[in-house]
Simulated scan of single mutants.
Amino acid sequence: MPGAPTPPPGCSAPVRGRPRSEAVEQAIVEGVIRLLEEGVPLAELSIERIARTAGVGKATIYRRWSGKEELFVDVLRSMEGPDAALPGTSMRDDLVCLLDHLRRHGLDLRRSTLLHNVFAQMKTLPKLWDAYHEVVIDPRRRVMHDVLRRGVADGELPADTDIEFASDLIAGPMLLRSVLRSDAPLVEDLPEQIVDTVLAGLRPAGRG
């Protein structure tokens, strides 16, 4: 599996603390991932089977997660890795950092392939799909929206900028290449290309 490239300066993954139960929780999460890699459908993953694979009791799982949906969301979140820590130096730098996180995500072929398979299955499991969006996707969208709102407040974008539409314009090309077009190159300067192209169309006339 090819290694992920070094992120741009100031765009690094946050350091997280280590709770006392991390080893047990990690064993459970890895047990779910192992079953998914073996081709077991999400709908057929029972708590009993997960516990057996992870080498723990069912009660151990239920003490940490209320049910499969909550567990699966944490599994998906762990597969995607931590969110990027934004440099905060400018709107452009933060946007480039967010897109580079998506780019590096797409470069991880093993994880990307497994996630694509899981995403396809999740669409038939509305509760899991909704929970994943609420816990993982929506917070990430809010981060980009906040960055763009800061750009508006600083005068880098017009006051009437449609934040949600601008966010889709910026994230869309990277998601297209990293999710839908596995043959498309994810070159190192792609985040800069996308951000600069979109901002050139959004910014007031005369601003570089």
Score class of each variant (00 low, 15 high):
residue 130 D to E: 13
residue 206 G to I: 03
residue 67 G to R: 04
residue 148 L to W: 00
residue 4 A to C: 12
residue 45 L to M: 08
residue 106 G to H: 00
residue 93 D to W: 04
residue 154 D to Q: 12
residue 147 V to G: 03
residue 126 P to C: 02
residue 95 L to I: 07
residue 38 E to Q: 13
residue 149 R to A: 12
residue 89 T to A: 15
residue 155 G to F: 05
residue 25 E to T: 14
residue 157 L to Q: 05
residue 179 V to M: 10
residue 49 R to P: 00
residue 74 D to C: 10
residue 80 E to T: 08
residue 134 E to V: 02
residue 166 A to T: 01
residue 6 T to W: 03
residue 150 R to Y: 07
residue 81 G to S: 12
residue 177 R to F: 07
residue 35 L to K: 02
residue 117 N to A: 15
residue 156 E to H: 06
residue 184 A to R: 01
residue 107 L to H: 02
residue 120 A to K: 02
residue 163 I to C: 04
residue 171 A to I: 08
residue 3 G to N: 12
residue 149 R to N: 11
residue 174 M to S: 03
residue 49 R to L: 14
residue 194 I to L: 05
residue 106 G to E: 03
residue 199 L to K: 03
residue 138 D to K: 10
residue 90 S to Q: 06
residue 117 N to G: 11
residue 101 H to S: 14
residue 134 E to F: 11
residue 14 P to C: 10
residue 70 E to R: 07
residue 20 R to S: 14
residue 148 L to Y: 00
residue 14 P to I: 01
residue 22 E to Q: 12
residue 108 D to W: 00
residue 136 V to P: 02
residue 9 P to E: 06
residue 179 V to K: 07
residue 36 L to G: 01
residue 5 P to Y: 08
residue 70 E to D: 12
residue 34 R to Y: 11
residue 59 A to Y: 06
residue 159 A to I: 09
residue 41 P to H: 09
residue 51 A to P: 00
residue 72 F to I: 09
residue 7 P to S: 07
residue 75 V to N: 06
residue 78 S to T: 12
residue 31 G to T: 06
residue 207 R to K: 15
residue 178 S to E: 07
residue 112 S to L: 08
residue 84 A to V: 15
residue 72 F to V: 09
residue 182 S to G: 08
residue 179 V to Q: 09
residue 194 I to Q: 01
residue 64 R to V: 11
residue 109 L to E: 14
residue 15 V to A: 15
residue 197 T to S: 15
residue 123 K to Y: 15
residue 84 A to R: 06
residue 29 V to T: 10
residue 6 T to F: 05
residue 187 V to A: 15
residue 180 L to V: 11
residue 156 E to S: 12
residue 32 V to Y: 03
residue 51 A to C: 09
residue 120 A to G: 06
residue 83 D to C: 06
residue 159 A to F: 01
residue 173 P to V: 07
residue 54 A to L: 03
residue 47 I to H: 02
residue 102 L to F: 13
residue 141 R to I: 12
residue 96 V to P: 00
residue 161 T to Y: 06
residue 138 D to G: 08
residue 84 A to F: 03
residue 88 G to V: 07
residue 105 H to E: 11
residue 94 D to W: 04
residue 190 L to W: 03
residue 33 I to Y: 05
residue 156 E to T: 07
residue 125 L to G: 03
residue 124 T to E: 15
residue 164 E to R: 06
residue 181 R to T: 13
residue 153 A to Y: 03
residue 23 A to G: 12
residue 199 L to N: 05
residue 160 D to S: 11
residue 83 D to K: 01
residue 181 R to N: 14
residue 193 Q to N: 10
residue 68 K to R: 15
residue 187 V to G: 14
residue 20 R to T: 12
residue 195 V to G: 01
residue 47 I to T: 14
residue 159 A to V: 13
residue 185 P to F: 10
residue 159 A to N: 01
residue 151 G to C: 04
residue 154 D to E: 12
residue 62 Y to I: 09
residue 20 R to D: 15
residue 100 D to A: 10
residue 169 L to M: 14
residue 195 V to T: 08
residue 48 E to C: 10
residue 71 L to N: 00
